[in-house]
Design a protein around this nucleic acid. Structure first.
Length: 271
DNA sequence: ACTTCGACCTGTTGGC
DNA sequence: TGCCAACAGGTCGAAG
């Protein structure tokens, strides 16, 4: 479920509910996420107020005066706001109870997600300090991708999915952006021209922005517990469309494996 | 510095 | 209907 647009949608969904709210309690029902949820979180966070909800890559940052909660949704994580009195649903491993009687709950069946706690600058945290620029930021442009790719022998798809190169480009949007840019996912990153990276940088931004815009729609009933990316799906040109025909040229969409992930592309439109 | 690959989990889907 | 294998929106970190 969570690609960057959904993490951003989640951020926008929860921010108004928890910003300025004081945490009264942290309940960790199962600390065994990707990394064990630190015991210091439940000890140190209560009594403090959320000053802002930010995002870096696919990590959400809940900032307070004394430290920052770092949350990652992994493959199956989602956050929702509930009444604190509501009985916990399955897989709701971590809950932040607020003084106003509401709760923020992380549900994550696969437990690839993470909840961490740092008392220093979150951006200097081990997980974030080497992270590449935000894909929607000004510094992520053709020149940047071109320069960073010169020494690389990996495919362009693996290149743009590398979080040290660009933050938060997931499998769906990597496939979609390459389609929009007309670049074959197997092309070697280091051999791609500046002008093609121009198209790719634009495509990444365009595709992510469009998806975030759609996410904004599902935002309305966010607290309902909300579900799947219903609308994105209709707009996907290649992802998950193996053996369907390409909207642009009618060729058969292909699927290959790269870096243990599925890639989808149109063999005619993408070279 | 870069690439490859295993690891972490559980739910869903599709074929037989 | 049941069973089993394949697969899923992520990405770190070790090893080569």
């Amino acid at each position: 479920m969570p690609e960057l647009p959904e993490v951003e949608t989640t951020r926008r969904g929860i921010a108004p509910h928890i910003t300025g709210q004081q945490v009264s309690k942290v309940i960790v029902r199962n600390p065994r996420l990707r990394w064990r949820v630190p015991a210091t979180l439940a000890k140190q966070l209560p009594g403090h107020t959320i000053s802002s909800v930010e995002r870096r890559a696919k990590y959400l940052l809940l900032k307070t005066g004394t430290g920052t909660v770092i949350i990652h949704l992994g493959m199956s994580g989602s956050l929702r706001i509930t009444d604190a009195t509501a009985p916990p649903a399955d897989y709701e491993h971590v809950e932040f109870v607020f003084a106003n009687g509401k709760s923020l709950r992380l549900r994550d069946p696969r437990r690839f997600g993470a909840v961490l706690w740092t008392r220093t600058d979150a951006l200097k945290h081990k997980l974030l300090q080497k992270t590449g620029p935000e894909p929607l930021g000004k510094d992520m442009d053709a020149g940047y991708l071109f320069d960073r790719s010169r020494t690389r022998r990996c495919s362009v798809k693996e290149f743009i999915m590398n979080s040290q190169v660009v933050a938060g480009v997931g499998n769906i949007y990597a496939c979609e952006a390459l389609f929009v840019a007309g670049i074959h996912p197997r092309r070697a990153a280091g051999n791609i021209s500046l002008s093609r990276y121009q198209r790719l940088a634009k495509a990444i931004k365009q595709v992510l922005k469009a998806a975030i815009k759609q996410g904004g729609t599902s935002l309305r009933d966010f607290t309902a517990s909300d579900g799947k990316p219903g609308y994105f799906k209709q707009q996907l040109k290649v992802y998950g469309r193996e053996a369907n025909s390409c909207d642009e040229c009618g060729s058969m969409i292909k699927r290959i494996t790269q870096g243990q992930r599925s890639s989808f592309y149109c063999p005619r439109c993408q070279r």
